[in-house]
C-alpha cells in the first residue's frame, strides 16, 4: 500500500469540532452545537436517519461547508484558514451521489484527475490510476465515458477516483449503496488496508452490517446533535437508542439478542463471533 507518506502519527488529534453550528442560507439549523474528536487512525461510522446531519457534518471536515458558528480543526489548524482545494489533499470525500463527482470523458481520466491535481509526478499518477482501475474491477471500462455507466459502476468510479489520491483522511458517504456483495466486500478490503497503514476513515452508512464488521466506533446523529459516541459494541447494546433512531441491527445481532438467556457472555456483532460464541450447536441437543 503506497501511501503519500502520512504526516501524522496514529493517535494524534486529526479532526476536532467545537460547538459546531450550521444552517443552509436562512434555513433552520442542521447542526446544533456538535463537538467531537477524531484521532489519526480512527475508523468511525456516522449513523442516523437521513436529515440527521451526517453529510452536513462530514462536509465540514474538508471545508466544503463552513460553520455558521464554532470551528473545525484539522491537525490543529482551523479549516477556515485553508481553501477547499488545499484541504482536499488531506481529506478525500466520496460523495453519496457519484454524479456530483464525475465529469471526465473517460473513466481513466476521471481517476487520474485527483492524483494529478495534488501535484504527483506523471508516472506516479499513471501507476495509481491503473492500480485503482484494477482494484475496483474497472479496467474493462477504462475508455468508457463514466457518466453513462450503470449506477453501481459510476459509484465504483467515484470511489476509485478518491482512493487513488490516498489522502490521510478518507470520508465515504454511503459508498456501498447499490453495490452487490462482492463489490461491497472488495471495496471494504481496500479501505481496511488503507486503515491499517494509518489512514483515518470516516464512514457514513445505513448498512449496520458494515458498521458491525468494520467500524469499531460509532457516532449516532439525530436532528443535528450527537446522540451517542461510543464503541460500536456498546451502541448496539442500547435498545432504546436504536429504536429512537430507527436503526435496525444486523440479522445475526437480532438473533443473538433473542437468544440472550443462553448468550455466551458478550454482545455479538458478526457471524464469526456468533459461531465462536456458541460453538457446536449440534452438541447442545437435549
Amino acid at each position: 500500500m503506497e501511501s503519500n507518506g502520512l504526516a501524522h502519527e496514529v493517535g494524534d488529534m486529526c479532526l476536532e469540532a467545537t460547538d459546531l453550528w450550521f444552517a443552509y442560507e436562512e434555513g433552520p439549523s442542521v447542526l446544533k452545537g456538535i463537538s467531537l474528536e477524531i484521532k489519526v487512525g480512527d475508523f468511525v461510522a456516522l449513523i442516523g436517519q437521513n436529515g440527521s446531519g451526517k453529510t452536513t457534518l462530514a462536509k465540514h471536515f474538508n471545508g466544503l461547508l463552513r460553520p455558521s458558528r464554532g470551528r473545525v480543526l484539522l491537525y490543529g489548524e482551523d479549516n477556515r484558514e485553508h481553501p477547499v482545494a488545499h484541504l482536499a489533499r488531506t481529506v478525500g470525500y466520496v460523495f453519496q451521489n457519484p454524479d456530483h463527482q464525475i465529469f471526465s470523458a473517460t473513466t481513466r481520466e476521471e481517476i487520474a484527475f485527483g492524483p494529478r491535481n495534488i501535484g504527483l509526478e506523471e508516472s506516479e499518477v499513471q501507476q495509481r490510476t491503473e492500480q485503482a482501475l484494477e482494484y475496483f474491477d474497472l479496467t474493462a471500462y477504462a475508455d468508457h465515458q463514466p457518466a453513462i455507466l450503470g449506477f453501481g459502476l459510476r459509484r465504483k468510479v467515484s470511489i476509485a477516483a478518491v482512493y487513488a489520491m490516498r489522502t490521510d483522511v478518507l470520508i465515504l458517504d454511503e459508498p456501498t449503496a447499490g453495490l452487490d456483495w462482492k463489490s461491497t466486500h472488495e471495496l471494504m478490503q481496500r479501505i481496511v488496508a488503507l486503515h491499517r497503514t494509518g489512514h483515518t476513515i470516516i464512514l457514513i452508512t445505513h448498512d449496520m452490517r458494515l458498521v458491525a464488521e468494520y467500524a469499531p466506533r460509532c457516532l449516532v446523529l439525530r436532528d443535528g446533535n450527537i446522540l451517542a459516541d461510543d464503541d460500536t459494541r456498546e451502541i448496539f447494546r442500547q435498545a432504546d437508542l436504536l429504536r429512537e433512531t430507527h436503526i435496525e441491527l444486523p440479522q445475526i445481532c437480532r438473533l443473538a439478542r433473542r437468544l440472550e438467556p443462553f448468550n455466551p457472555g458478550r454482545n455479538i456483532l458478526t457471524v464469526a463471533e456468533f459461531l465462536e460464541g456458541y460453538g457446536n450447536l449440534a452438541e447442545r441437543m437435549r
Partner: peptide, 9 residues
C-alpha cells in the same frame, strides 16, 4: 430451531 437445542442444555 436453536432455542429448542439450547433449552436442553
Amino acid at each position: 430451531a436453536l432455542v429448542s437445542r439450547l433449552d436442553g442444555k
